[in-house]
Design a protein around this nucleic acid. Structure first.
Lengths: 145, 145
DNA sequence: GCTTGACCTGAAGTCAGCTTTAGGTTCTAA
DNA sequence: TTAGAACCTAAAGCTGACTTCAGGTCAAGC
């Protein structure tokens, strides 16, 4: 059993955030002793999942839904599986988009390195839209389509 | 030259968002004709960069700074290069984190497939923390460290 | 018994990034 | 020339995820 302060330390999360999560229903079965929250292994595990779901883009109220499914037992396995499958698909999408963004950033890094070397953007702009060096052209095409 | 409505169509962005960007200083040199905004190729290009910088996690006021550097000419090449280099490093970090999140999602997908097959979580929990099937163990380790 | 630090609550405040509202102006086509 | 679509502004409103505040309770050591 942990106090809210100990859990705050473990996860580097402010105590106020943990209380907020609790108020939002993210720890549906957490116990209390004379008003004071008792975080068990169960809540600590839940918090790990919460961090993951948050990182995958889920909103608090959807995480609450998931936590409620968890405390309803095996009848909600399919719903939970669906949730993770949907999150996985959404994150794959997002990663693909971020990789495009990354190519734009790489292109722009190259662009400004050249601009600094030349003291001007003109010589680079003259190569657009399809006479850039091969590697750079790939980046440019990938993020301009 | 484009009207705000045409640009809104081109980028699938609400007109109100374009006006908001303008108010925030993201188009520092945009012209007007009797009060009406004239989007030139320059502003359209700017908007492409804005979308990229936003996707990379930059805030509006930082994008404004960048746009101002752009209209100050070659003396700011180095600052602009730095900006993109920093963004690239930050996005690499973020991608690494998201890949961990992805491993957690994959693990959870597997977990609930098994739970559904077995009708219970117990047989899986018995394999923790290091007797999972090889491929799954990798995912589990990668997101629990 | 008393102090002090960690806990508790409900309500209000904050922040970014828009969106909506209300009221007005300008352009376009019949 | 006039209707109506598309433009304009300033200001207020919204949303999600917290954070801060004011005021109170609990527990451990002296």
């Amino acid at each position: 059993m942990y106090t809210i302060g100990q859990v705050s330390e473990m996860f580097s999360l402010p105590v106020s955030t943990l209380r907020y999560y609790d108020k939002e229903g993210l720890f549906p079965d957490m116990e209390r002793k004379s008003g004071i929250r008792q975080f068990s292994e169960k809540e600590v595990d839940a918090l790990r999942v919460i961090e993951c779901l948050k990182a995958s883009g889920l909103e608090i109220r959807e995480i609450k839904q998931f936590m409620q499914w968890c405390s309803e037992g095996p009848s909600t396995f399919e719903k939970r599986r669906q949730l993770f499958a949907n999150r996985k698909a959404a994150l794959e999408e997002e990663l693909a988009q971020l990789n495009k963004t990354m190519d734009m950033l790489k292109y722009k890094c190259w662009y400004y390195e050249q601009a600094l070397k030349n003291g001007s953007e003109e010589p680079i702009l003259a190569l657009l839209p399809d006479h850039l060096p091969e590697e750079i052209q790939k980046l440019y095409d990938n993020c301009h389509k």
